[in-house]
């Protein structure tokens, strides 16, 4: 279980997180929604230790994430970055098997390549993609490779940062379905940030809306449309009129 308690983060004079409280149960899929610049990525990166909160506590299974063996902590996570964040200088299979080629999870090269090709197949890519470089792939293929890399070491927890941004509706649907299938299949805990409502309905068990530096609303995805929260209603409907200022 991941728990965030009164997490604050300020950049210069801009207070992004103003006391976030959120719990993500093990084996569930939590989707965090919110407008651009509301701190969704900061929240996600705070859990991983890529951003250090000014105050507050983040725990994983009751243990403070800032304490203990960092490598062991990170080995439990996989992450799909918004732009894929694939390493340009490595081939696709080397990207996917990055974790399996070095460090505590190191395997023989041939075994790591086999696993990489299997994961590529799992996300719908043919084995002939394995020896290409990321720059030779389309945006959708890069996202799939990023997804394959995120699941290569079979992590317990997977983070998805804007998984469908920049993709056409069909490819977005494919990625959403893949994420849902993989999370269910692996029994992983998932935390996704997005402002794509189609993704929310496809991926989420629970939804949390981040607005004004705090969690404005949280609950099961089935309750989202009847929440009665004016902020959430405006966001779901995509209206310019409402409590959320359209010009920020």
């Amino acid at each position: 279980m991941i728990a965030l308690s009164d997490v604050h983060k300020t950049f210069g004079s801009n207070a992004v997180l103003k006391g976030v409280n959120l719990t993500i149960e093990s084996g569930t899929s939590m989707v965090i929604i919110g407008g651009s610049g509301t701190g969704k990525s900061v929240l996600l990166k705070s859990v991983l230790g890529l951003v250090h909160p000014d105050s507050g506590l983040i725990t994983l299974d009751g243990k403070d994430v800032t304490k203990g063996d960092r490598d062991a902590f990170l080995a439990r996570f996989g992450m799909l970055f918004q732009g894929g964040a694939l390493f340009d200088s490595l081939t696709v299979w080397q990207n996917v098997a990055f974790r399996l080629l070095r460090g505590s999870l190191k395997r023989p090269k041939s075994e790591a390549r086999e696993i990489a090709i299997e994961k590529l197949r799992r996300v719908g890519l043919k084995p002939d993609v394995a020896d290409r470089f990321p720059a030779e792939l389309s945006g959708g293929m890069q996202k799939r490779v990023g997804l394959a890399r995120a699941i290569a070491a079979e992590p317990e927890i997977i983070f998805f940062d804007e998984p469908t941004t920049g993709l056409d509706p069909i490819m977005s649907g494919v990625i959403n379905d893949l994420i849902r299938e993989i999370v269910v299949e692996m029994g992983a805990t998932a935390m996704t940030i997005t402002h794509d409502m189609t993704s929310v309905r496809a991926i989420a068990d629970h939804v949390a809306m981040l607005h004004g530096g705090v969690i404005q609303w949280t609950g099961p995805v089935k309750d989202m449309d009847q929440s009665g929260d004016p902020y959430l209603d405006q966001f779901i409907a995509g209206r310019a009129e409402g409590p959320i200022e359209a010009v920020r």
Binding site: F81, Q82, A85, F87, R102
Partner: peptide, 16 residues
């Protein structure tokens, strides 16, 4: 460029 495209963050999440 690696930093701008989040490749540095990706390295960290891959325990590197």
């Amino acid at each position: 460029t690696m930093k701008v495209t989040e490749q540095i963050d990706a390295l960290v999440t891959l325990s590197t």
